[in-house]
């Protein structure tokens, strides 16, 4: 850790705040974190923020992300009454929709690729 990381934290915090500000100002059901994600992407693509200005702290945060969900998931013990009647439907819906989504996505993507490759004769897959 160095001062470089402190400035990375500052950039990331600034964009996070910007995202929350947009969530506060705009009447859309979009989380502040998503405005922040898009804002960060725009800043990177336009070169206003260089990748190495946020990368090491950003990659570290993304790598430890699962631990941030421990609190909410453990919270399932205190809200048991609100979902105890739907455990089986939730399980069945989760399994079925995962298969449906995977098949629909893969078949559509592959179909479009085949269609284009048919038109342009030979295009390599890799």
């Amino acid at each position: 850790m160095s001062l470089k990381h402190l400035s990375q934290i500052a950039w990331i915090a600034a964009v996070s705040f910007g995202g929350e500000l947009l969530n506060y100002l705009l009447p859309l059901p979009i989380p502040g974190s998503i405005y922040g994600l898009v804002l960060m992407l725009i800043l990177l693509m336009t070169g206003i923020v260089k990748l190495d200005r946020v990368k090491s702290v950003g990659d570290w945060l993304v790598s430890i992300m699962p631990v941030m969900f421990v609190g909410p998931v453990v919270g399932l013990i205190s809200s048991y009454d609100s979902y105890k009647d739907i455990i089986i439907p939730v399980f069945v819906i989760t399994v079925l929709t995962t298969v449906i989504t995977m098949a629909a996505t893969g078949l559509t993507a592959q179909g479009i690729i085949r269609l284009q490759e048919g038109k342009e004769d030979e295009t390599n897959a890799e």
């Binding site: 964009v15 996070s16 960060m40 992407l41 990748l51 990659d59 969900f69 609190g71």
Partner: peptide
């Protein structure tokens, strides 16, 4: 000083998902 401290990092971390997307 509970698990919420990790949870508070969620918004900045979601913002940082822009980094692998950009790459």
């Amino acid at each position: 000083t509970g698990a919420v401290m990790f949870q508070n990092l969620l918004t900045p971390t979601t913002v940082c998902l822009a980094i692998p997307l950009y790459e």
